[in-house]
Structure formats: structure tokens, C-alpha cells
Design a protein around this nucleic acid. Structure first.
Length: 577
DNA sequence: CAGACTTTAAACAGTG
DNA sequence: CCACTGTTTAAAGTCT
């Protein structure tokens, strides 16, 4: 019941500054959001039915094609089909969740979300990196058709090819209200809460399901009261609606794509099912199971004591559509992964910098070693030296992930400082500060980042085993998510710094080449030029909140920003939101 | 398989 | 005594 995807007032402000909806627009959006919930249910049903339908068809095909060999092929294809369908189901949910969170994090309303450009492919947090890679390889052919994000004509794509009449029947099992699947523009009459007097898409299990809310409401009237008071037509709600709208758009876009894909598969099987070539993803039927399993089981392992992810293991992906949890991050990101090994991703500092915004807001574990992060923290400082506490502060400032489990990662930081020769402790007038011995650091560059065992295990279980199956899902996630990350503000002066550090890490990990540009001039990435601010201020005073930096992270209790202890308690606070 | 490396945990000492 | 800092050891896991 944690609500990690809280949208902070500051974020709200930012969003609102971009654009504000008119009440009319808001109305429409509200309806759309409600309809989205319905859509989800309908689509779930639809996919299930569709799957059954497919099985029937394929069985028939088997009967027709007598030869055993042929049957085998068909069976294989069938399985692949089932995978695809399962994928789509999961995709629906995952996508909703993820986008919802991501959208809340970094969406910039004024900016069109649709130009799906691979802006941040190198630095996409955690799985998104993999996702992106797989997208670009597996999905690259699919040119973005997605301008008509608003139309979800299920009836045309999937259905038409094979079983038009039947599918349309099963499409909406509880279509008592709208007869056909009017996914696109929800009709007033079809709103769920009008079907059932006391059911509301924004209300379930005694909690308000307004994105980021989850206030407890004992009964429906109190919920309505809450809804009217807390989510009235104001700036905040407006902005949240905007976000939700983008979520919907992305979902629709993705769905359209996957439908297309499915149709292609179906068409392919229908027309030439005797073709020697097997289905696209013949390998692992288990993977669909594994996917959800790994998502739910691996998470607790990877974040053993992270109060932020309690819902991850507990919330199966098959939850109701309106449930928004940390699962939305799809394994919550604790997967540490190098970007370079398997994929030679060109990495631009822009990518990195843009991604930093993500890490500042999302509790995703940054895919960098402690040593790299520490080094970067130090190099970012005006005098290339930091006290331990300042390093702590940098971590919490720059990475939402490090606002929790302070005992753990702080210990790790200290451990790294002591352990690595590249970190040199210097006695200062005011105490001891830590510096970086760049030579030493470079020495250890060539080796690869391995990272947390459990994390890696997690990654492997979910990636290696499930890769083929996940392709579509991942593709969709990546495709839709990436732009969202990248739209965030670029004004942070330290972006370039971290960017360089990260680039550093990447360079080292990739080729171990040309590693001088970044390390010798830590803050001088192109991005930094835009914002020359930071480096000047408060070399030693951790209490001082640094203007641009603190605004996102401090959300609920900005004054205490630099006191890490607050972050440990943050779970409690955030739950109140 | 060994070695290098990272992460996490924990014990311990010194200091204010 | 406590909290913080810093050092050190150990275990577990990955990667080459």
C-alpha cells in the first residue's frame, strides 16, 4: 500500500507552468481516465478470448494439416502465439503502470510525447536499457505509425484477419453498456461507475485510486467526498490528468503496434502455416510465466529491505488495471547493467544528462558502481574534494534510490572509500576530505562492472531467460517510456557532471578508450555550459539546499533535504501522500 | 576453474 | 553512551 509514485507539488508546479487545462478539457480527461480503466478490463478479456480463439483455430489447422511434421510446426507457432497474447496482456498492465509512474515523474506536458525518439538509449535506467536495445533490434523495422494514438480500433486489426465475427462477439464480455468496444472515445453512458452505483474506477479496495493518492476511504460516500475535496478541479488535478492522458496515449499507441504485430502473426499462420519457418519466438513458452515470476520474486531479493518496493513482490502483474504500484517500474529498476557489453550503444552526454533527471526522481538503482559514483561526487565538487557527509548528500541528492536504506549504502560508500586506492583521504583544516586519485581510478577502469549479485541474478533471470518473450513487452516499454524520461528539465547544472562520470564509466566499460575528455573536466559537458551555476556554491555546507537540485527530490519535506536520516523515514511520509 | 571485482554485512577502533 | 568516521574482514555473486 505504499505509494511511491507520488507526484510532488514541485513537479506539479512545473507541469502546470507548462500548460493548464481548461475545465472542459479536464472533464474530458477525467472521462478518459475512467474509460481507461474500463479499457483495461475489456482488453484483458479480449486478449483472453482472443487466445482461446487462436487455440481453436490452430487446432483446426492441425486437423487440416495431417502430417506430423506440420503439426509440430503449427504447435510451435501456436505456442508462440500464446506467448504473444500473454505478452500483450501483461503489456497492458505493465505498461499502464510503468507509464503512469514514469509519466508522473518526468512528463512535460507541453511537449509532445509521441515523437518516439531514442534519445536516451544509452542511459535508460535498469531494464529499460535492455528493453531499448531489444527494441531497436527487434522492433526497429516497425516504423512509428503512432500518430493516431487516439484510435484503438481493435475490431479492425486483430479481428479481421482470422475470425472476424466471433472475435467481435467476445470482445467485450460485459459490454452491456456500450455494445461495442469503444475504446477510443469513451461514451458517457459506459462509465463503469454508472454501471455499478458504488463502483468507481477511482475507487477500489477502500482506497482512492487517483494516481498518487491512495487515500483510505472506508466507504463509497466518503470516497466521493474525498474525491471532491482532494481531487477537485484545481491545478494539481489538472496536471495529473494531463499526465494520465499521456499515459493513455502511450498505451494506445503501443497497443496499436502490438495488434499490428499480432495480426501479422496471425495472417502469417493462417495463410502459410505450412511454411518451414517457425514462429518468431519459438523458444520459451515458460517465459511468460517466468516473466511475471521474476518480476514478483526477484524484486524482494534485489531490494531486500527497501520499503519502497513492498508492492512489487506482493502485487502480481495481473492486478486490476487501476492498481498503481511500484511494480510499474517493472522490477523497480534494481538491475544493474552495463550498457556497453552486449550492445555498442553510442552514448551521448545528452542521453546521460537527461537520464539523470530520472534517477533523481525515480527510485531506480543507478547502474554504476559505488566507486564511480563516489568519484563523480568528488569531481563535481568545486575543489575536487568532499567530506564523507557531503558524499552522502550527493548521493541522496542525485539519486532517489539512495534516499533509502541509508545504513546500507552509506556503509558501502565508506567501504569503497577505504577500499579503493583511488580514493585518498586528506586531512584538512576542517577535518578530513576525500579526493580522487585519477590515476588509480583509471587503473581499475578496464574491468567491468559486475554489480550486486542478486541484482545481476535478477537481471539475468528476467533478461536472459525471457528475452525472446519479453521482446514485445520490452519493446513497448522502451519505446514509450524513453521519451518520457528525456523530456525532463535539463537545467540542472550538475547534469553534465554526472554525465561525464557516467560517460566515463561507459567508456571504460566499453572500450577503455578516450577516457580523458570526461575525467579531467568533470563538469564541462556541453550541457553544463547551459547552466554555469552550481559549482560555486557551498563546498562544505551540506545544509544548504542547492537551488535547482533540491527541487525535485525534496518533494514533501524540502527543508530537511540534506539530512539523510529523513530519507530513511521517508517511506512513512510518502505513504501519507 | 581461478582471479578480479562489486556489493553487502558486520565488527571494531577512534573521536567528538 | 552515542553517533559518526574510517578500516577491515568475510561472504556471496558475476564476469572474464
Amino acid at each position: 500500500m505504499m505509494t511511491p509514485q507520488v507526484i510532488t507539488p514541485q513537479q506539479m508546479q512545473q507541469i502546470l507552468q507548462q500548460q493548464v487545462l481548461s475545465p472542459q478539457q479536464l472533464q474530458v480527461l477525467l472521462q478518459q481516465q475512467q474509460a481507461l480503466m474500463l479499457q483495461q478490463q475489456q482488453l484483458q478479456e479480449f486478449y483472453k478470448k482472443q487466445q482461446e480463439q487462436l487455440q481453436l483455430q490452430l487446432l483446426q489447422q492441425q486437423h487440416v494439416g495431417k502430417q506430423p511434421k506440420e503439426q509440430q510446426q503449427v504447435a510451435t507457432q501456436q505456442l508462440a502465439f500464446q506467448q504473444q497474447l500473454l505478452q500483450m496482456q501483461q503489456l497492458q498492465q505493465q505498461h499502464l503502470l510503468s507509464l503512469q509512474r514514469q509519466g508522473l515523474l518526468t512528463i512535460q506536458p507541453g511537449q509532445p510525447a509521441l515523437p518516439l525518439q531514442p534519445l536516451a538509449q544509452g542511459m535508460i535506467p535498469t531494464e529499460l536499457q535492455q528493453l531499448w536495445k531489444e527494441v531497436t533490434s527487434a522492433h526497429s523495422a516497425e516504423e512509428t505509425t503512432g500518430n493516431n494514438h487516439s484510435s484503438l480500433d481493435l475490431t479492425t486489426t486483430c479481428v479481421s484477419s482470422s475470425a472476424p465475427s466471433k472475435t467481435s462477439l467476445i470482445m467485450n464480455p460485459h459490454a452491456s453498456t456500450n455494445g461495442q468496444l469503444s475504446v477510443h472515445t469513451p461514451k458517457r453512458e459506459s462509465l463503469p461507475h454508472e454501471e455499478h452505483p458504488h463502483s468507481h474506477p477511482l475507487y477500489g479496495h477502500g482506497v482512492c485510486k487517483w494516481p498518487g493518492c491512495e487515500a483510505v476511504c472506508e466507504d463509497f460516500p466518503s470516497f466521493l467526498k474525498h474525491l471532491n475535496s482532494e481531487h477537485a478541479l484545481d491545478d494539481r488535478s489538472t496536471a495529473q490528468c494531463r499526465v494520465q492522458m499521456q499515459v493513455v496515449q502511450q498505451l494506445e499507441l503501443q497497443l496499436a503496434k502490438d495488434k499490428e504485430r499480432l495480426q501479422a502473426m496471425m495472417t502469417h499462420l493462417h495463410v502459410k502455416s505450412t511454411e518451414p519457418k517457425a514462429a518468431p519466438q519459438p523458444l520459451n513458452l515458460v517465459s511468460s510465466v517466468t516473466l511475471s515470476k521474476s518480476a514478483s520474486e526477484a524484486s524482494p531479493q534485489s531490494l531486500p529491505h527497501t520499503p519502497t518496493t513492498p508492492t512489487a513482490p506482493l502485487t502480481p502483474v495481473t492486478q486490476g488495471p487501476s492498481v498503481i504500484t511500484t511494480t510499474s517500474m517493472h522490477s523497480v529498476g534494481p538491475i544493474r547493467r552495463r550498457y556497453s557489453d552486449k550492445y555498442n550503444v553510442p552514448i551521448s552526454s545528452a542521453d546521460i544528462a537527461q537520464n539523470q533527471e530520472f534517477y533523481k526522481n525515480a527510485e531506480v538503482r543507478p547502474p554504476f558502481t559505488y566507486a564511480s559514483l563516489i568519484r563523480q561526487a568528488i569531481l563535481e565538487s568545486p575543489e575536487k574534494q568532499l567530506t564523507l557527509n557531503e558524499i552522502y548528500n550527493w548521493f541522496t541528492r542525485m539519486f532517489a534510490y539512495f534516499r533509502r536504506n541509508a545504513a546500507t549504502w552509506k556503509n558501502a560508500v565508506r567501504h569503497n572509500l577505504s577500499l579503493h586506492k583511488c580514493f585518498v583521504r586528506v586531512e584538512n583544516v576542517k577535518g578530513a576530505v576525500w579526493t580522487v586519485d585519477e590515476v588509480e581510478f583509471q587503473k581499475r577502469r578496464p574491468q567491468k562492472i559486475s554489480g550486486n549479485p542478486s541484482l545481476i541474478k535478477n537481471m539475468q533471470s528476467s533478461h536472459a531467460y525471457c528475452t525472446p518473450l519479453n521482446a514485445a513487452l520490452q519493446a513497448s516499454m522502451a519505446e514509450n517510456s524513453i521519451p518520457l524520461y528525456t523530456t525532463a528539465s535539463m537545467g540542472n547544472p550538475t547534469l553534465g557532471n554526472l554525465a561525464s562520470a557516467i560517460r566515463e564509466e561507459l567508456n571504460g566499460a566499453m572500450e577503455h578508450t578516450n577516457s580523458n575528455e570526461s575525467d579531467s573536466s568533470p563538469g564541462r559537458s556541453p550541457l553544463q555550459a547551459v547552466h554555469p551555476v552550481h559549482v560555486k556554491e557551498e563546498p562544505l555546507d551540506p545544509e544548504e539546499a542547492e537551488g535547482p537540485l533540491s527541487l525535485v527530490t525534496t518533494a514533501n519535506h524540502s527543508p530537511d533535504f540534506d539530512q539523510d536520516r529523513d530519507y530513511e523515514d521517508e517511506a512513512v511520509h510518502e505513504d501519507m501522500e
